[in-house]
Design a protein around this nucleic acid. Structure first.
Lengths: 163, 163
DNA sequence: TCCCGATATCTTGACGTCAAGATAATACAA
DNA sequence: TTGTATTATCTTGACGTCAAGATATCGGGA
């Protein structure tokens, strides 16, 4: 009987006509995401970042040399809107972690690249981030972890692999 | 090979020293939460609400008669800060869906109650919401759904049942 | 009775996000 | 070559959230 179960029990009492069997599953996914996000945010803050700016730097870093992508490329890799991305890049540029360069082949386009400072920052942050993530799942038995990951992958595919 | 796997593959190429085995699990939970949240938001919007205001109304509704709780009670049931709750109640009061009453037994305290309009609104919204949630998990085989829910419950307990 | 710590709620200011639309450059058909 | 649709990015305004602190009330000890 966890907090989600309590919520379901209340609904069953007040609105017995409702089928809330799906509510528990979805509620648990969302509560877990919130808990995990808050923990990870602490690691980002310790490196002068937040999840928004980390996300941009990490995408550039893992894209490999020369560590530059257009805003359009970045958008395709993230679950955000274009206005949000512009704001993130502005913040990072102001902090000297990325720079914008004109794309000589297309006047509409821009290439956002990691600066040396940005490269150092994201490399240190992602190292700590991986450790935080390992800690956040450490309490989960290996078998549960594997089973959970497999089930989530199948579920997620229904949203991201239209077919 | 979903999008999360692509991210892990990039990290393995660029930072083979990192152990990213936990990153996939956490990433999938968070991406799922985002997808689910956006879908549910559409249902709330169709009823003139959003997830923030729905959350307050739903908590009051499922608390049962007389459909009134103090901000403190509401806070305990939600994963938000007090300032956020004050703002939510303000919005709902402005819309005529809840009302604040002084608590005669404690001058510091307030009782937030559903108005008739608020009661009608949340009853209609939650009916639609339950249908949306059912649709969002409909593609999942019943066995997977049960297994996933059980694993998530165990994982969530590590964050919400300190012991 | 009086005072002070605890409690309940609200206020303030900054920030991240989004939807919708603006701006500018490119591509391609006529 | 010209004009229009398309593409890439940015701007604007509104909103929800948070952390930190302010305000007001309560409760218990001196």
């Amino acid at each position: 009987m966890d907090r989600v179960d309590e919520i379901l029990a209340q609904w069953n009492r007040e609105r017995p006509d409702l089928d809330v069997t799906s509510m528990g599953l979805i509620g648990r996914i969302r509560r877990l995401a919130a808990h995990l996000g808050r923990e990870m945010e602490k690691t980002f803050a310790a490196h002068g970042l937040n999840s928004a700016t980390f996300d941009v730097l990490a995408t550039l870093r893992r894209s490999g040399p020369p560590y530059g992508l257009s805003p359009g490329d970045l958008l395709a890799a993230m679950m955000i809107t274009s206005g949000t991305l512009t704001n993130r890049i502005d913040q990072l540029e102001k902090a000297g972690l990325v720079k914008r360069n004109h794309n000589p082949e297309d006047g509409r386009s821009v290439i956002v690249s990691l600066t040396d400072k940005g490269f150092s920052a994201i490399d240190a942050a992602v190292t700590a981030h991986a450790a935080t993530q390992a800690r956040l799942v450490a309490s989960l038995p290996a078998a549960d972890k594997a089973a959970l990951d497999a089930l989530l992958r199948g579920y997620l595919a229904r949203f991201e692999n239209p077919a």
